[in-house]
Simulated scan of single mutants.
Amino acid sequence: MIRILEEFGVRDKDFDALKTVGDHLAPDPTLPFRETNGARFCLDSDQGSISRLEFQPFVLSVKEDFVRHDSGKLRRFRGIGDNLQLNKAFHALLFFKYFIIRDVYVSPRPNLDMSSAKWVSTVFPTRTITTPDVLGEPALEGVHSDGVDHTMTSLLGSHNMTDDSAETFIHDMREDNAKRWNETNPAFLRGKFQHKKFLDTVLIVDHERKHSLSPVRAVDPRLRATRDVIIFFTRKPATKGHISYPYDSFNPHLEFPLNLNIPSPPTVAPTVALADTKKVAMADA
């Protein structure tokens, strides 16, 4: 990932700044062990651009395979700031995801406009925190989907976290929602992945594979443990009947505007990595 992002002009100072994003997050509105900011972006194939969209509440429902105490509730996250929005490594992650997903067919979700040239990408830099009193859960909801076309997570860093923490398990869609990661049916397990190093990344075809995660556990249980990631949810625009339809504005963000021209994909060695990754994505789809 570092080699690929460097082809988009990312330098050491950009990577170093990205690693500190978790130090500037706000309390999550519904989870006591998490700090999270959020932002919405439009990935537009026709215009060849990525732009920031105005604030809208965020909501996921049981109908979208997301079963948790806050399913169906509107959640409002504090917006990301310039420390992330202006970071070239962050821009390159958006470009990377765009190039991977743009030509890959995925099983369509109900009430999404799959013919649109646009995607809504909702981005959540997130810190999961374990303390002597609270166990941090990257996925308290257990087995779930995220109500999107693609879910991508990239690791920014961790502190005092055990080597067996926060493992991602990939499940067949037949697996029951809300099951704990260690209570699932082995026959439905399709793979597992663990973010270990800076920018380790997984991209899931969200309507074709469910996923779950194990908790964040502390090496020294007397001290706080943290795990920082950026989550990129990407889906086609909602149509009438979708729970997010009233909150799917494509108006630009006036206070923190951003408009990026999507560059050409890398043309040297990392192009091979992009092509190989796309083959894997297509084979899995």
Rank of each mutant, 00 (worst) to 15 (best):
T128A: 05
E175S: 10
D163S: 09
A187F: 00
H171W: 14
I101F: 08
M114I: 06
P263S: 05
V104G: 12
E255A: 12
T131E: 03
I170L: 07
D248W: 00
F169Y: 09
A17W: 03
P246N: 10
L112W: 03
G22E: 06
V268Y: 10
A92I: 00
F188K: 03
N261G: 00
R227H: 14
F99M: 08
G22T: 01
K197I: 09
I230N: 05
M152G: 14
L223M: 13
S45Q: 07
R190E: 14
T153L: 04
V123I: 14
H207L: 00
I231T: 15
R75A: 10
T271K: 05
N182F: 08
W181M: 03
S154W: 02
R11F: 10
R68Q: 13
I100L: 14
G142K: 00
D248Q: 06
F55C: 07
K97N: 15
L60K: 14
R227N: 08
M114Y: 15
T234A: 13
F41V: 06
D12Q: 06
F233I: 04
S145E: 13
S212L: 01
N182K: 01
K192G: 09
V59R: 12
L84D: 06
K179R: 10
I204F: 10
S49C: 01
F188L: 02
S145G: 15
V67M: 05
P27K: 06
F66C: 12
P132T: 11
L18Q: 08
T128M: 04
D23Q: 09
L60S: 15
T271Y: 11
D44Y: 00
K196Q: 15
Y98P: 05
E175C: 05
K88S: 13
P27Q: 07
C42G: 06
P215N: 11
I129N: 07
P221T: 12
A281H: 09
L223S: 15
N185S: 08
G9E: 07
D16I: 02
I4V: 15
R11A: 13
V272A: 11
F99Y: 14
M152W: 11
K88G: 07
P252N: 07
V106C: 13
S264Q: 03
K197A: 15
V280M: 06
P237S: 01
L93F: 10
M1K: 08
